[in-house]
Computed example of a mutant assay.
Amino acid sequence: MSFPISFVGAGPGAPDLLTLRAAERLKQADLLVWTDSLVCPGILDLAPENCERVRTSTLTLEKVVPHLINGHQQGKRVVRLHDGDTALYSAINEQICALNDADLPVEVIPGISAYQAAAATLNRELTIPGLVQTIVLSRAGGRTGIPETEELDRLASLRSSLCLYLSARHVQDVQQTLLNSYPPDTPVAIAHRVSWPDEWISIVPLHAMAQTSLERNLIRTTLYIVSPALVQGEQRSKLYSPEHDHLFRPKS
C-alpha cells in the first residue's frame, strides 16, 4: 500500500495544540523529516521510537526532497513536519512542486498559527464590531522582500489587526512605519515562543514596541499583533443581540 507524503503543521509549539489528524500522522510515521530549528521537541515524542528522524535546519531543498522521495519509494509513511500552519511561511510550495514532478501523492494537514494561539493566551478576539473587522497576516521585508503592493506602510494604513511574523530583527523600522498610521498608544502584543514552555507574551503601547523587543533581545520566533482590539471593551456583536433577528432566531 502506498501512503501519501504528509505535510503536517505542528502548530505554535505545545503538543496538545496539534490537530487530531496531525497527531495521528505522527503516531504512524516511519520517517519524520522535521524543521528542528522551529518545532518544539516535545512534539516528536508522539512518533514511534523506531521512526527514522531527519533534521532539516542545515539542509537545502535539494537535500530534503530526496529523503521524502526515497522514504515513499521504500513504502514508508513519510511525515514532513513544519512549524505553525502550513499555509503561512512554511516553504511547502517548492517541496510539493518537486514531489508533483516525481508524480508522488501528497496531503497537507494544517496547524494552528501563532497569532491564533497568542490571542487565545491573551483571552482576546481580534475582530471587534465597530472597531476592527479585518486581520492582516504579513511580515517585514527583510532579505526575502515583499511585493510593492504589500509594503508595510500600505498594510498599516488599514489600521486593522495586523499580525507580523519574522519581523523582530527589523523592529525599529517596523515601529517607525506603523507610527505613521496607528496612534502611538495602540496596543501591541509581543509574543515570543508562543505555547512553548518558556513562552513570553506582553502587551505594550506601539511606541514601546522596539524598546521592549531590544531589551529582551528578541530576534526570532517572535510575533507582533498590532490591534485596537487588544483593549478589551464592551462592544457587542449583533449575533446575540435581542434586537437582531436571523435565520435561526426570527422576529417573534
Score class of each variant (00 low, 15 high):
D153E: 15
Y89V: 01
T134H: 13
A117F: 01
N123R: 14
V136C: 13
V108C: 11
Y115R: 00
I92E: 03
A114R: 07
C163W: 04
A120T: 13
D153M: 02
P129R: 04
R124F: 03
V132M: 07
A117W: 04
T149F: 06
S160N: 13
Y89E: 05
A168F: 08
I96F: 09
R124W: 06
A156P: 07
S90I: 00
I96E: 11
N123A: 06
E94F: 04
P110W: 05
L164T: 02
E150D: 15
R139H: 15
Q116I: 02
P147G: 04
S161Q: 09
I128E: 07
L152P: 09
D153A: 09
T134F: 02
D101C: 09
S90K: 03
P147M: 05
I135E: 12
L126V: 03
T121R: 14
A140Y: 15
A91M: 11
D101M: 11
V108T: 13
S160G: 10
R143A: 13
A98H: 10
A168D: 03
G145S: 06
A156T: 11
E148T: 14
S113W: 02
G141L: 10
R139D: 10
G111F: 04
S157L: 14
C163G: 06
Q133C: 02
N100E: 12
A91V: 01
P105T: 10
N93Q: 14
I92K: 08
E151Y: 10
L158R: 12
I112H: 06
E150P: 12
T121Y: 13
L122P: 02
T134V: 07
I109Q: 01
P105A: 09
E125D: 12
S90F: 01
A91P: 01
Y89F: 15
L137C: 11
R159L: 00
A119S: 11
E150S: 13
L88W: 00
L152M: 14
L104F: 10
I112P: 00
G111H: 00
S161Y: 03
I146D: 03
H170M: 01
G130L: 02
I109N: 05
P147V: 11
I112M: 15
A114V: 02
S160I: 05
T149V: 07
Q116H: 06
S90V: 04
A118I: 03
E151D: 07
L162N: 09
S138R: 09
I128F: 09
T86W: 01
D153S: 13
G142C: 11
Y165I: 09
I92C: 12
S113Q: 08
A87M: 01
T149Y: 12
G111K: 09
N93R: 05
I128K: 06
G141K: 15
A168W: 02
Q116S: 08
H170F: 09
R159N: 04
L137A: 12
L126N: 08
S157V: 03
I128A: 08
T86H: 05
Q116K: 01
S167D: 08
A119Y: 00
R159D: 01
I146S: 12
E125A: 08
C97I: 13
P105I: 06
Q95P: 00
P129G: 11
S138K: 12
C97P: 00
Y89M: 01
P147E: 06
S138H: 15
A119H: 02
I146R: 14
E148N: 13
I128R: 05
P129L: 04
L88S: 02
D103A: 14
A118M: 02
G130T: 02
L88R: 03
L131Y: 00
E148C: 03
I96W: 09
